[in-house]
Amino acid sequence: MKIIFILTIMLFLAQSVKAQDSTTVSVKKEKISAQNENNRDPLIDKKMKDDVFIDKDGDGICDFRTKGMSFEKLKRRNRQGPGDGKGKGKGNH
């Protein structure tokens, strides 16, 4: 009987603690929610910023998603100066 009583007390205490935790979590969530209304989480702001469509080179692809990829490199390499000597000039053919 004593053992059953002790187990009942322990179960009650455990449920009480769980209920308290739920309340705490709920309060915390409300607090965070209230905070975010006034001052959004910087991580959320960053994600929103990344989702803004910005296409600097005009290829139709958002530049945030093309970091590290550049199709302009080859074009730049071929623009090395005012002349390439192509033409009818003697020795050219």
């Binding site: 005012p82 002349g83 390439d84 000597g85 192509k86 033409g87 009818k88 000039g89 003697k90």
Partner: peptide
Amino acid sequence: TLFYQDELFND
């Protein structure tokens, strides 16, 4: 032979 600038220097 007459050479124009464009033919030599891609003007």
